[in-house]
């Protein structure tokens, strides 16, 4: 029940859905339609796992007064506050999820700017890395460096002052050698995904069972 049944579900489900693809019959279509209707509902509940884990980690930090524990309130309060504001708090008092509402305000004016700015920090770090780590130490490194510089210049308007050859060279690198390299990598990744799929479906790979008891 604990290991065999889940492994059987994976195998039967996997084989059934694979066969379904090759049989364009109305019964097969019924299976397909019901499955695509059900799966997002099952998937929606997976969010509970994330919420449960976050709550557990941060409530433990608060209880144990771990270093920086007061910040855990900054996770827990919005974690439960956001759904409360969107779904329970009355709309007459700025509840609900549409604009204007407190829920919408917090998302647009705290979540969006913080996340966007965090990602934009990478601009500073990549500049620093370009200065400290990007070295023409070997012929191959020099090729990488030259390719990067040509593409960087070709992608911006100022690159056009060097003449059309620069943009054309940049595009040529993207459309041919870059494409060849990426296709080779992608084929490797594609075969890897397919092999892993088969290993999981046939129960060779079982790490996903985790440590929830034998």
């Amino acid at each position: 029940m604990k290991r065999t049944v889940p492994l059987m579900i994976v195998m039967v489900g996997g084989i059934l859905m694979m066969i379904q693809y090759f049989i364009p019959h109305q019964y097969s279509q019924v299976v397909f339609d019901n499955y695509t209707e059900w799966a997002p509902i099952v998937g929606a509940f997976a969010l509970l796992l994330g919420v449960g884990s976050l709550t557990r980690v941060h409530s433990h930090r608060i209880k144990r007064k771990a270093p920086n524990w007061p910040y855990s309130w900054a996770v827990l309060i919005p974690l439960f506050g956001m759904p409360f504001l969107a779904l329970i708090w009355p709309e007459s008092l700025w509840g609900g999820s549409d604009s204007p509402s407190v829920f919408h305000f917090l998302f647009m004016n705290i979540q969006v700017p913080i996340q966007s700015t965090m990602f934009s920090l990478l601009a500073f770090y990549i500049a620093s890395a370009a200065f400290r780590a990007f070295r023409a130490k070997s012929a191959l490194a020099t090729v990488l460096l030259l390719s990067a510089v040509i593409v960087m210049l070709a992608q911006v308007p100022i690159g056009e002052i060097f003449g059309p050859w620069l943009q054309n060279t940049g595009l040529w690198i993207l459309r041919y050698p870059n494409l060849a390299a990426k296709r080779a990598i992608m084929l490797g990744v594609g075969f890897g995904i397919l092999a892993t799929n088969l290993k999981i479906i046939f129960g060779v790979e079982r790490n996903w069972l985790g440590g929830a008891g034998e």
Partner: peptide
């Protein structure tokens, strides 16, 4: 009863991989 959580994972993973297999084969290979 933590082992019961394997059931929804097994359902989504097995069917997801089965349904994705021929399409991934086509798209990426």
């Amino acid at each position: 009863i933590a082992w019961l959580s394997r059931y929804p994972i097994a359902f989504l993973m097995g069917t997801g991989m089965g349904i994705g297999f021929p399409l991934t084969m086509k798209a990426s290979v």
